[in-house]
């Protein structure tokens, strides 16, 4: 067999893709509504916010860390930005919103990065702590309440259609807003960074072996610090996208997303132990979870069962990838014996 094909079969991505396909076909058979333009557009639109979060989480996991503070960070950054612009009666376009949110996200990301990078504290504990702090600032200091109106610039950005698809049978139209381009751009930039910059390779290197990374000349602490800033920036952008798309700001409804995001990224073959995984896998895993969540209605399953279903997919997906890696480990062992 061709070496490249062989390597591909040993990775997670084709299997996740297969699960997505099989699931899609199952929904199609049941409802006839899966492979319709508007359903696909709906799914892509539902992927935007989790997809951005997943990219941030992906970075943290690759470097051997983890981040559970991003929903709180995103909520805080998005809330503070929206509130500020409303108070100013700002009429301009969405750029200002992103600029302010990115600034806030970078500062809070730097807080995470300082503790995890420079003080070398455990990432899980630090982000659990900062998550509480971010929520506290939002609810206590800012006295956050639901904002049912948002600045016009954000409103336009969230509703202007990038792609419109209409279902010929039902006549329902679905809109893919321009926020999708944000996801696309972030994906490409981060993918380029990880593949073609020394900084990006440093993230992989320190996830694989931090001591060797230090010995090889990487600035381990600085790399972690900058990386958590980037994660904060991505999360805050995601927060703004969410507010634009929902046409309102609800301070708590992003909280609790972290578990499904982490599950999706891990499902895509990213190792919790750090160092291993691809951006494509991360997106596929996240897409699978979004798809399951969104297809409940088409399958005729009551939405109350949605969590059970998502849980099943996660467990099954992780089981498959564990089986995969077990098998290849055994094969590697056998090859070693034969060579000896």
């Amino acid at each position: 067999m061709d070496k490249k094909v062989k390597r591909l079969l040993h990775s997670n991505e084709p299997y996740i893709f297969l699960i997505i396909l099989v699931f899609g076909i199952a929904v199609q058979i049941k409802s006839g509504q899966f492979f319709t333009g508007n359903n696909i557009v709906d799914l892509l639109s539902a992927l935007i916010v989790p997809g951005l979060f997943a990219i941030g989480e992906f970075l943290a996991l690759i470097a051997g860390g983890i981040d559970v503070s991003f929903p709180a960070l995103a909520s805080l950054a998005a809330y503070a930005t929206t509130k500020l612009l409303l108070d100013m009666d700002y009429e301009g376009n969405v750029v200002a919103a992103f600029a302010i949110a990115i600034l806030i996200g970078a500062v809070f990301g730097a807080v995470n990065g300082f503790f995890i990078g420079y003080l070398n504290l455990n990432a899980m504990i630090v982000t659990l702590g900062t998550s509480s702090i971010f929520q506290g600032i939002m609810q206590g200091t800012l006295r956050a309440q639901q904002l049912s109106a948002i600045p016009p610039g954000m409103k336009n950005f969230g509703t202007t259609a990038f792609i419109v698809a209409q279902n010929r049978q039902s006549g329902i139209t679905s809109v893919l807003p321009y926020t999708f381009l944000i996801l696309g751009a972030v994906f490409l930039i981060i993918a380029f960074m990880l593949r073609y910059t020394i900084f990006g390779r440093g993230i992989y290197a320190l996830g694989g072996n931090p001591i060797s990374a230090h010995a090889a000349g990487f600035h381990v602490k600085r790399t972690k610090f900058l990386m958590y800033i980037i994660i904060g920036v991505i999360a805050s952008m995601s927060g703004i996208c969410r507010v634009c798309m929902m046409q309102q700001m609800h301070p708590t409804n992003m909280l609790g997303m972290e578990m499904n995001i982490i599950a999706g990224v891990v499902l895509g073959g990213v190792a919790l132990t750090g160092g291993a995984g691809t951006m494509i896998g991360c997106m596929l895993g996240t897409f699978l979870i979004v798809m399951v969540q969104n297809s409940m209605i088409l399958l005729g399953i009551p939405t109350t069962w949605s969590n059970v279903f998502v849980g099943l997919v996660i467990v099954a997906g992780v089981a498959i990838s564990a089986y995969q890696s077990n098998r290849s480990a055994k094969q590697a062992g056998r090859h070693a014996k034969e060579a000896a």
């Binding site: 390779r201 992989y204 290197a205 996830g207 090889a216 990487f218 160092g275």
Partner: peptide, 20 residues
């Protein structure tokens, strides 16, 4: 050996030089 298990052989060999 101070290697990076998650990276390819090529990268393990070249990384130090690239960083330097």
């Amino acid at each position: 050996f101070s290697l990076f298990p998650n990276l390819t052989v090529a990268e393990n060999l070249a990384l130090n030089t690239e960083v330097a």
